[in-house]
Nucleic acid binder design. Structure first.
Length: 842
DNA sequence: GCAAGGTC
C-alpha cells in the first residue's frame, strides 16, 4: 500500500497547531521539533475530503513578512528627502531576518506536501498571513494547492466543520491589510524622519533614549494616543470655573441623618436658586409623597480577557498595561495562569470548572470561598460576555501557587503575586452569584420642590465576598476590586410631614482630571486606535520610549513639553488631523472597504498617499513652526506651555481650508469680510449627538478669533437675504430647543438677528457656554467613559472631535439634573454613585 | 534611527 499523501497545515500560533492536532487526532498526534524552538511539527493520520492523508501540522508566529523600502538609499536617513518615502520610494514585502527560520520551517514541510490548509485566525490579519504563508509554500512547492480552514473555536466539532468546509483564501481581506501596512510604513517613516531631522538641524535639545538616540517619531496610532492626552490637558487649561447653587436637605430620625438630594441637582443662576431656597425655607415642611423599594442585583464580572485585566489591574495596582502584560506572560510561562493575550470573555462549553476550582481549594486565603462554591452550592456557571477570539479561552488560574512559589514570583516582580491573586479572585467571582440588595427611596416635596433619599440594604454579598474587601466575618481581602455599600433609611410613611433642615449650598465646577491609563485605553478602544494587542504598546511608546507624556499624581497622564509642543505644532501647521483620531478612522474605514471589495486597494492607496503628500507639503513648508514651537516649549518660553494666552486650538484650520468634509456641510456665506482676518465668514453644520446638528461660524484663516460655535440648543439656522445694517453680517433665523434654552431665554425659541453685533445673542451665547461647562467629577476613574459628543467649539459627532474631553462638553438635561460632581454624583435613576442614569446598570 | 500588526 502506498504511503498516504501528505497535507501541510499551518496555524497562526503554535498553541493552535497543537490544539487542532490534538482534537483531530484524538490525542494521538506525534510531535517533532521544527526549524525554530516555537514552531513544532505535529503529525497524524486523518481523512480530508474523503482521502486518507498524513496531516503535517505546524505554525508560524504571527506575520511572516513585513513591508520595507526596496532600495538601500531609501532605508538610509541621510541620503533621501523624506517626502520621497510617501510615494516615490518602492516598497516590497519580505520575510525579515528574525522570521527567516519560521519561513524555512514552513518551506521545508511544504516540499513533501501537495496541499496546504491554512488555519490562520479568522480575521483580516489572519487572511493576510495566509497569503504570506502561501507565498513561502509556493517558493518550495510551486504547484501546491491552498485551502483555507475557517474555524470559530478549537473544539473537535469546530475543527471537523472547518475541514468539511474548506474555502479559498480571501484575497480582498489580505489586500486590505497590505494597504494598511504600506500606508503605516510610508507615513511613519516620512514624518518620523522629517520631525527628527528638522528638530535636530534646528538645534532643538531633544530627549535621548537609552540607546543614545533622539527620535521624534510620528505614528498614525502614536499621535492620536498622544493627542488624547494633550487634548485633556487643554480641556483642563480651558476650564473656567462656574459658580453653582443647590439646596441641601436633610432630616434626623432614629439616630440617622438622612440626606435628600434635590431633583434639580444644581442651578447656575444664583437668583433663581436663592428664590427656590427661600420658598422652601418659608414653607419649612416636607411631605412624604412616595416610599418604594425594589430588589436590585449587582452582577459579577465576565470571564477575564486581556483588556479587562489591564484596566482592572491598572486601576488598583497602578502599574502600566505594558508591565501587567510582562508579569502575566511570566505567570503564564511558569504555568500559573492561562494564556494572557486573549479577547475572549466566555468560557467554552466544556470548560472544566470543577477541576480548576479543586486545584485552588487549598489556597490559604481564598480556599474558604472555593469551599463555598464547590461544597456550599454557591457555584454558578458564568454566562460570559460576547467576545471570542476563537483561539484562546479567558484568563484563569491554572495552578495553585505554593508559599515557596509565591516567594519566587515576588523575587521576579513585586507585583506578580497580586496579578496572580487577581486572576484567581476574578475567576472565583465569575463563578459566583450576583450580590442582591434591597434598594429603597423616599421622595419628599417641600414647597413644590422634590427631593429624594435612597438606601441600600445588602441581602446577599455572594461574589463580593471574594471580589470585594472580604466577607464581614473575615478574612479581609486586599485590594477590593468591587464593593457595594450599605446605607439604610429610617422608616417614612407616605403622607407624613416633618420639618427638614434646609440650606443653600454654593459650589464651583472643577476642571476634569488628567487622563488615567484606563481612560486612555477606553478612548483608544472607542476610536479604534490600535488593537487589543497593541494599545498597551502604543501607550508605552508615547509615555515611555518617546517621552511625549509622563505619569503624574495618582496614575494620571500628562503631556511632556515635547509632547504638547508636537501636537500644538501640528495643529498650528494646519494638519490637526495628524493628531486627531479621525485620520486613523478614515484609514480603517477604507481598509474595511477594500476587505469587502467595495474599494480598489490601489485607489485607496493613492487617495491616502495623496492626502499624506498634502500634509507633508504643509508641514515641510512650515517647518519653522515645528522647530520654533517645540524649541520654545523645550526652553519653557511658549506661553501656551503655561496656559497663558492660549486656548486649546480646535482643528480650525481645516474648517474652511479643506472644504465641506473638514467640518460638515457648508450652509452659506454669512459675512463677506471678517474684520479680524479679512476673509469670508461661513456657516457650516455637522452631525451632532442624538440626531442633533452642531453649527459653527468661521473664517478663512486658521484660528481666526472671530469664529463662533453656535449654542448647543440650536436646532436649525437659516441665512436670510437681508443684511444686518450695523455690520456686514447677514441676518440669521434660529430655531432653538425650548428644552435646552437656558433659564431666562425661553422667548428666543425662534429668533432672527445678527450674531456678530446683537447683544441679546451674545448674552445667550455666554449663558449657553456657562451651562455647557461641566461640573467637576468626584472620581473619574469610576465613571463610565463619556460618549463622544459635540464640544464647545462645535466639532460635533462621533469621530470628529468628540474625544471625551470634558471642558465644554455638552451634557443632557437629564445628566445635569443628576448633580454629577462636586460632593454629589449619584445616578438619578438608582441613586448610586459612580455612574449616570444613561449608563445605569440597575 | 522610522510604523503597526501579528506572536514567543
Amino acid at each position: 500500500m502506498p504511503p498516504n499523501a501528505r497535507v501541510l497545515n499551518v496555524a497562526e500560533k503554535p498553541s493552535v497547531a497543537k490544539e487542532i492536532s490534538r482534537v483531530l487526532s484524538n490525542g494521538t498526534a506525534r510531535v517533532r521539533e521544527g526549524a525554530t524552538a516555537w514552531n513544532k511539527v505535529w503529525e497524524f493520520e486523518h481523512v480530508v475530503r474523503g482521502r486518507p492523508v498524513t496531516m503535517v501540522f505546524t505554525s508560524v508566529t504571527g506575520h511572516l513578512s513585513n513591508f520595507e523600502f526596496a532600495e538601500e538609499r531609501h532605508r538610509r536617513w541621510a541620503s533621501v528627502d523624506p517626502r520621497e518615502l510617501l510615494v516615490d520610494a518602492r516598497v516590497v514585502k519580505r520575510v525579515p531576518e528574525d522570521k527567516r527560520k519560521t519561513a524555512e520551517n514552513v518551506k521545508r514541510e511544504a516540499r513533501g506536501c501537495d496541499t496546504v490548509i491554512l488555519w490562520l485566525d479568522c480575521d483580516r490579519e489572519g487572511e493576510n498571513i495566509a497569503f504570506e504563508v502561501l507565498e513561502a509554500c509556493r517558493q518550495a512547492k510551486p504547484g501546491i494547492t491552498a485551502l483555507r480552514a475557517r474555524f470559530s473555536a478549537l473544539g473537535r466539532g469546530d475543527a471537523d466543520r472547518a475541514l468539511a468546509n474548506l474555502v479559498q483564501p480571501n484575497e480582498y481581506e489580505a489586500k486590505a491589510v497590505d494597504m494598511r501596512m504600506e500606508l503605516d510604513l510610508r507615513l511613519g517613516a516620512a514624518f518620523t524622519r522629517f520631525n527628527t531631522l528638522a528638530l535636530q538641524r534646528a538645534g532643538v535639545g531633544l530627549p535621548v533614549d537609552d540607546k543614545g538616540k533622539s527620535i521624534v517619531s510620528y505614528g498614525p496610532c502614536q499621535f492620536p494616543t498622544l493627542g488624547f492626552i494633550v487634548q485633556r490637558k487643554w480641556d483642563i487649561d480651558a476650564h473656567v470655573s462656574e459658580d453653582f447653587w443647590s439646596i441641601k436637605c436633610s432630616h434626623a430620625r432614629e439616630g440617622t441623618n438622612t440626606k435628600f438630594e434635590w431633583s434639580r441637582g444644581r442651578l447656575f443662576d444664583r437668583g433663581f436658586a436663592s428664590a427656590l431656597h427661600n420658598m422652601c425655607a418659608r414653607a419649612n415642611v416636607a411631605t412624604v409623597i412616595d416610599v418604594d423599594g425594589q430588589e436590585s442585583r449587582r452582577w459579577p464580572p465576565h470571564p477575564l480577557n486581556t483588556i479587562e485585566m489591564q484596566k482592572r489591574l491598572n486601576r488598583t495596582l497602578r502599574i502600566s498595561p505594558e508591565q501587567i502584560m510582562k508579569i502575566a506572560e511570566d505567570l503564564y510561562n511558569d504555568g500559573f495562569i492561562s494564556y494572557p493575550r486573549t479577547e475572549t470573555d466566555k468560557f467554552p462549553a466544556d470548560f472544566n470548572y470543577d477541576g480548576t476550582l479543586r486545584d485552588l481549594h487549598p489556597h490559604p486565603q481564598f480556599g474558604f470561598y472555593v469551599d463555598q462554591l464547590i461544597n456550599g452550592g454557591r457555584f454558578r456557571q458564568p454566562p460570559g460576555g460576547g467576545k471570542d477570539d476563537k483561539a484562546h479561552p479567558p484568563i484563569y488560574p491554572t495552578k495553585l501557587a505554593s508559599e515557596a512559589q509565591y516567594q519566587q514570583m515576588r523575587a521576579k516582580n513585586q507585583h506578580a503575586p497580586k496579578v496572580y491573586e487577581f486572576v484567581v479572585r476574578h475567576f472565583l467571582a465569575t463563578c459566583s452569584h450576583p450580590a442582591i440588595a434591597m434598594k429603597t427611596h423616599v421622595d419628599i416635596v417641600v414647597a413644590g420642590e422634590t427631593f429624594r433619599a435612597t438606601g441600600v440594604m445588602i441581602r446577599e454579598r455572594n461574589y463580593l465576598d471574594i471580589y470585594g474587601p472580604g466577607p464581614p466575618e473575615g478574612p479581609r481581602l486586599a485590594p477590593a476590586y468591587d464593593n457595594w455599600g450599605n446605607s439604610t433609611l429610617p422608616l417614612y410613611t407616605p403622607g407624613e410631614q416633618f420639618v427638614p433642615a434646609l440650606s443653600l449650598h454654593e459650589g464651583q465646577t472643577r476642571p476634569p482630571d488628567y487622563l488615567s491609563e484606563v481612560d486612555l485605553l477606553s478612548l483608544m478602544e472607542s476610536h479604534m486606535i490600535g488593537t487589543d494587542a497593541t494599545q498597551a504598546q502604543h501607550i508605552e511608546k508615547v509615555v515611555g520610549e518617546r517621552g511625549y507624556a509622563r505619569k503624574v499624581g495618582d496614575n494620571r497622564l500628562t503631556p511632556t513639553q515635547l509632547g504638547e509642543a508636537l501636537v500644538l505644532a501640528y495643529d498650528r501647521m494646519g494638519v490637526a488631523d495628524m493628531w486627531l483620531p479621525t485620520k486613523r478612522a478614515k484609514m480603517e474605514a477604507d481598509v474595511d472597504a477594500v476587505a469587502k471589495n467595495r474599494l480598489d486597494p490601489n485607489a485607496g492607496l493613492r487617495a491616502h498617499l495623496q492626502a499624506m503628500l498634502d500634509a507633508y507639503d504643509r508641514v515641510a513648508a512650515d517647518g519653522l513652526t515645528l522647530t520654533t514651537t517645540v524649541g520654545a516649549f523645550m526652553n519653557g518660553q511658549d506661553n501656551a506651555a503655561n496656559g497663558v494666552g492660549h486656548r486649546p486650538m480646535p482643528p480650525g484650520n481645516d474648517i474652511n481650508g479643506n472644504g465641506a468634509d473638514a467640518f460638515g456641510d457648508l450652509i452659506g456665506v454669512i459675512r463677506d469680510t471678517c474684520p479680524s482676518c479679512q476673509g469670508e465668514s461661513t456657516l457650516r453644520s455637522a452631525p451632532g449627538v442624538r440626531n442633533s446638528k452642531s453649527f459653527i461660524a468661521s473664517c478663512a484663516v486658521p484660528h481666526c478669533m472671530s469664529r463662533i460655535a453656535m449654542p448647543s440648543c440650536t436646532r436649525d439656522i437659516k441665512i436670510e437675504q437681508e443684511g444686518c445694517g450695523r455690520c456686514q453680517g447677514r441676518l440669521l433665523t434660529f430655531k432653538f430647543s425650548t428644552l435646552y434654552l437656558p433659564v431666562g431665554y425661553q422667548h428666543m425659541q425662534r429668533w432672527s438677528g445678527c450674531i456678530f453685533c446683537d447683544a441679546e445673542f451674545q448674552n445667550l451665547l455666554r449663558a449657553c457656554q456657562a451651562e455647557d461647562h461641566p461640573p467637576a467629577r468626584e472620581s473619574p476613574a469610576r465613571r463610565p467613559n463619556p460618549p463622544p459628543v459635540a464640544d464647545g467649539y462645535g466639532r460635533g459627532g462621533r469621530g470628529r472631535g468628540g474625544r471625551g474631553g470634558a471642558a465644554g462638553r455638552r451634557r443632557s438635561r437629564a445628566e445635569r439634573d443628576e448633580g454629577v460632581g462636586g460632593q454629589q454624583g449619584n445616578c438619578f435613576k438608582c441613586g448610586e454613585a459612580g455612574h449616570w442614569s444613561m449608563n445605569c446598570p440597575n
